[in-house]
Design a protein around this nucleic acid. Structure first.
Length: 428
RNA sequence: GGAGAGGUGGCAGAGUGGCCGAUUGCACCGCCUUGCUAAGGCGGCGUGCCGGUUUCCCGGUACCGGGGGUUCGAAUCCCCCCCUCUCCGCCA
């Protein structure tokens, strides 16, 4: 969440930010928060004075004679009743303020393009050449089903739609790309993590997914736990409530985890194939560092580059887009998506998402650090996909397919496939 | 799942109704003493909020796992929840 001081000092910028994100209802939360804050601040001096009085009176009590005591106690009881009423009011105001403040979206940065939907995202650069086929290329699901690598039918029968079975070489390729992703980041100094997949609400709230993302989340009501939609949640929350030492920053983590998404409200969209599924594996990079905008920008650049390097190593054409205001989530200040070329969609489609938050998540998480000789401050956080599979299998299969249904393995992935350069047998 | 013990400031560890925002030790910072690969003395050393001064601070208030209750007054008593540890049971 934002610092209430930012709302006080620059309410227009905060409101404008919510509008840029196409969240007019959230803009109203700014005014509600400010009204509650003003009310709370008006009553605080009085409240503190009453507490002070009660405290001082308590200390006098012992010195009073037996005759003086009853009258004094009566007086204190009256004060107590008044105090309790006011404290009750304060508690409610504070809870309501927290609610409203948590609804206020992070302010989109100046480099966020205006726009409403992903159609308004702005291309930053395009890398690689889209292959020209001398045969009719097939969609990944046709190749996969012909090779016996994919089974959507049986998966749907036992688990519902948007589920899948991967078999054989495709199951191996799936694991290969994920392992490659982890190793690439480990080489670059990221600490590998295997995080919890079921988390408490505090982690969902702290990373900004709640409130708002409840419909996208699988939840075990019995245990009060949520299945993560991304390792960003447990990893960014790792140090919640802590005050880190500045000399231990930045913290860079790379986590491989299963991810679960309900995909509510997407019925009829991307129904074929591996594009939109309820469960997948993802390697995610998370950076926690000091509150310095320049450093955040550097990290953002670096984590995008990490993912670009992976795509280049996999010989996949892609483009980087700056996500527009309306397509930005509540907690992000700025986001780049990387879209990889998918022949069956005849389009670049999202495979990566790199966000910077400044201190928005850290404030919700109580994640702070102590600068050299200074007071604790909230950290800056960032994250980006390194590889999400099976979605990344779509461009891998489709861009590297041969006319006979076999698939070439990019050199970078061969070490994870026993050195093999070709997957599958001729099926077409 | 059952029984028990415990959660206090960076760490260790006192405190069982007001004298406690909290003894003490370690760690850390400053000064002093002294000198040689160290020791001793003195002082300082949590976080949030409100206000003042305005960036050195000062005053008030809250915080002893979280929430509620009893009380004029709670770290301290009661209830609920979370976490850690020990033992028993069950299961992989």
């Amino acid at each position: 969440m934002l610092d209430i001081k930012v709302l006080r000092e620059n309410p227009d910028a905060v409101r404008a930010g919510a509008v840029k994100k196409c969240m007019p209802d959230r803009a109203e939360a700014v005014d509600r928060a400010l009204a509650l804050d003003a009310e709370l601040r008006a009553m605080t001096p009085r409240l503190d004075a009453m507490r002070s009085e009660q405290k001082a009176a308590g200390k006098q009590l012992g010195k009073l004679s037996a005759e003086q005591r009853p009258a004094f106690l009566e007086q204190q009881k009256a004060l107590k009743v008044e105090l309790q009423a006011m404290e009750e009011q304060e508690k409610q105001l504070r809870a309501e303020l927290d609610t409203q403040l948590s609804l206020v979206p992070n302010i989109p940065d100046d480099d966020v393009p205006a726009g409403k939907t992903d159609a308004d995202n702005v291309e930053v650069r395009k890398v690689g050449t889209v292959r020209t086929f001398d045969f009719q290329p097939r969609p990944h699901y046709e190749i996969g089903e012909a090779q016996g690598w994919l089974d959507f039918q049986r998966a749907a029968e036992m688990a519902g739609s948007r589920n899948y079975f991967l078999f054989g070489d495709l199951a191996l390729l799936h694991d290969a790309i994920l392992r490659f992703a982890v190793e690439l980041l480990v080489q670059r100094g990221f600490v590998p993590v295997d995080p919890p997949l079921l988390v408490r609400d505090a982690a969902m709230f702290g990373t900004g997914f709640f409130p708002g993302g409840e419909e996208q989340t699988y939840r075990s009501e019995k245990d009060g736990l949520n299945l993560i939609g991304t390792a960003e949640v447990p990893v960014t929350s790792l140090h919640m409530g802590e005050i880190l030492d500045a000399k231990d920053l930045p913290k860079k983590y790379v986590a491989r985890s299963a991810c679960f998404r309900r995909e509510a409200g997407t019925y009829g969209k991307d129904t074929r194939g591996l594009y939109r599924v309820h469960q997948f594996q993802k390697v995610e990079q998370v950076v926690v560092d000091v509150a310095d905008k320049a450093r955040s920008l550097e990290h953002h650049h670096d984590i995008v580059k990490n993912s670009e390097d992976l795509l280049q190593a996999c010989e996949l054409p892609y483009r980087v887009v700056a996500v527009c205001g309306g397509d930005l989530g509540v907690p992000q200040a700025m986001k780049y998506d990387i879209e990889t070329w998918m022949p069956s969609r005849n389009a670049y489609s999202e495979t990566h998402s790199a966000s910077r938050f400044y201190d928005y998540q850290a404030r919700r998480l109580g994640l702070r650090y102590r600068p050299e000789g200074g007071k604790p401050q909230h950290c800056h956080t960032l994250n980006n996909t390194v590889a999400a599979s099976p979605r990344i299998l779509i461009p891998l299969l489709e861009n590297h397919q041969n006319a006979d249904g076999t698939v070439n393995v990019p050199a970078a992935l061969r070490p994870y496939l026993g050195g093999r350069a070709l997957l599958g047998t001729p099926v077409f």
